[in-house]
Structures are given as C-alpha cells and as structure tokens.
Design a protein around this nucleic acid. Structure first.
Lengths: 189, 189
DNA sequence: CAGATGACCAAAAAGGTTTTTTGGTCATTT
DNA sequence: AAATGACCAAAAAACCTTTTTGGTCATCTG
C-alpha cells in the first residue's frame, strides 16, 4: 500500500490523539508500519509532517463550513451558521480540539504557529464571503479583512471564552440575536 | 507616618515593578520600612494585599476613562475614546502592563483571577454607559452586557492581538472607522 | 541498486534529590 | 497594644542523572 498515505494517516491519528509534542516519530512509524527512516524520505522533519496534517484539516474544515451555506439565504444567516460550524469544528474535531488544548496547556510553539495559520485561513475564508456579499450588494462596502477578523474573534469570544468568566452558558439564539443586531445590522446597505 | 498607607505604596511599587509572583513579602516590608509581621496586621495575606492594590488600580483606570467623556458628544465617539483610553492604560500603566505580561508568560493563577476581575469591572462600566445611552434614546435597546463584552473584546483584539499575527499595526482611525461602520452603526436607533 | 530500515547519536526532556526561598506565625520587644 | 524579626513548613529553584526523542546514515533487501 502507499507508504506516504500510510504515514499521513498514522500521523493524523497520533497528532489527534496525543497532540504535537506527545507524538513521537517512532510512534508514527510504528502505527504506519514503516521504519522511522522512511518517514524522512517523504517529510523533511516532524514539523513539516505536522504542517501537512494541519493543512489537510483546514481543507476538511472549510469543506464542512461550505456545506452550511444555503444559496439564496441572506448573508446574516449564512454567516452565523458558517461561524458556528467552524467553532463547533474547533471544539469537536479531535485534532483541532487537541491542538487548542495543547496550545493552552503546554504552549508548544509549533502548535501556536500552526493554530495562527488555521485562524488566518478561517479569516481569509470569511473575508472572501464578505467580499462576495458586497459584490452582490447584500452588504455595504467595508474593510472585509477587518470585519472578518472581528466576526471570528467575537464569535470565539462568545462561544469559547464567555463561559470561562460567566457561569451561565450563552444560548445560540442569544448569540445570533446579538450579532444580528450589532455587527451584521451595521453592515446592511 | 501611616503604616498602612506606607505598606500599600510599597506593595504597589513592588507589584508594578516585579509582578505578583516575584514580589516577596520581605521585599514589601523592606520598601515600606516596616517589619514583615506588620503587614499581616493590616492585610490577611499576600493575595488580599494584592487584591487591595488591584482595586485601587481599577479606580484609577475608571477615573481616567471617565475623563475621556465629553458630555454632549455622540455615544459612538465617547465609546471609542473610552475604550482606547482603557486599552492604552492596559499597555502603559506599569501595574496593569506587568500583570498582563505575567499572566501571559507565567500564568500565575492569582494574577489570572485578578485580571478577570479587572475585565469584569471594565465590561460593567461600559455596559452602564450603554444603558445610559439607551435611556437617552441615543441607542436602540440591546443586551448591554453582551454588547459591552463584545466591544471590549473586539477592541482588545484589534489594539493588542492584531499585531501578533499581522505585521502592519492598525491605525487608530482605521479601528475607529471599523467600529463606527459595524457594531456602533448597528446600535443606532 | 533504489528505496526502506533500525541501530546509533547528540540534544533535549524527564525524573529525582538537595538546597534555597518564601508566605505566614508568634514569642518577644518596645 | 502594636510592631517586630527569628523561625518553620512548604513550595520553588537549582542541580545532577537518566531516559527519551528527532534526525542520520551505513546496511540491508526486494
């Protein structure tokens, strides 16, 4: 069977299960049923292998987000659903969740870098959607990069961080209403 | 001279200069020119002393923010100025800046707790201002606590976190424009 | 003989132990 | 009655030892 694929899958499993730091190349080799040296004929080093895995995860995530979009639905609604999907992915997807945890608990620098990469990708994706909506005159022209960043950070704030300082969880409807009445409302033509 | 005051000032200095963890009670005693035991006749323990200091800082900060408010100025403008002042305070004020650094680098739990307290105070303050603006019909009714949280987190995001992932700093005007055109605009009646 | 392998190595991390520091107390002093 | 600093247990830092790990490369094999 394809050795490279085998290695990628093994790495995906191991990173998802144990995170970046706690995954050893020996382990990946063992799971993939290859010699350790073999890994290095396909991937320069651990970090590059990791990068490859994370890029795959990003594709997966964007695909899942894209599925949330309902063509003739107003931007507001699609935006909310996409953002919620992404944040749900962030909490539910084994690898993403593990990396967020590792970044918070161990502060592995490589993980930090890669998570920044993931966020950048998400923000770009949202910015693109905003630009499309602007072209369709669904939204007023705006600094789409900044607005995308704002939306993403704000959603993270409410979905992930709010509960850290407040005891009652926020309902999805309350979050949706908030954004409908503030940022998204402000963007309407 | 007033021993309690002496101790408070010494503690303020030491916490500002070295942070919570690196400040020792011996040191505070020495700076305050009192015996270590004396501190414990006024403050239950190090944490309580720290709390006292932080509460004082909060008052200072709210006072500085309040000064930014121009009575017959639209909410938008005052809000922007107040938030920028608070974030500037966060970066410039020795103690606040030191604590933010310590929380990021050392993750001292006590510091984390107290910073959460500071943020809560800020958000409450802003929520209050929003409520006043709603009463004056300057803003549409809204979930002021959530909006305040949103504004604060969003401003932090742009003023403090943006530069971590992007190389070009954001101009204050660009930030102001963004909020004017999104959140604040969405809140207008 | 091209591609795979695992013993091997330096460097980093983990583990374990000793030494130092520090928050807090309290008998003594002022 | 209020202040003090020697004192103590516990936590942190420093130190040393052992183990683990990313990466290499001489050797093997299909």
């Amino acid at each position: 069977m394809d050795r490279k694929q085998e290695i990628l899958e093994a790495a995906y499993k191991s990173f998802s299960l144990f995170g970046y730091k706690a995954t050893t190349m020996d382990q990946v080799a063992k799971i993939a049923n290859v010699g350790k040296g073999t890994i290095y004929t396909f991937f320069e080093n651990k970090e590059i292998l990791f990068q490859e895995i994370v890029l795959r995860m990003i594709s997966e995530m964007i695909l899942a987000a894209e599925k949330e979009i309902v063509p003739n639905c107003p931007f507001q609604e699609n935006a909310h659903n996409v953002l919620m999907k992404i944040l749900q992915f962030r909490e539910v997807h084994q690898l993403y969740a593990k990396l967020v945890e590792e970044e918070k608990e161990l502060r592995t620098p490589t993980v930090k870098t890669m998570l920044a990469r993931v966020e950048k990708e998400i923000v770009s994706y949202i910015a693109e959607k905003i630009n499309i909506a602007i072209d369709k005159k669904e939204l007023r022209p705006c600094d789409s990069e900044l607005v995308a960043y704002l939306l993403f950070k704000a959603y993270i704030g409410f979905v992930a961080d709010w509960s850290a300082t407040h005891d009652s969880e926020l309902s999805e409807e309350r979050i949706a209403a908030l954004f409908r009445n503030t940022i998204l409302r402000g963007l309407l033509p």
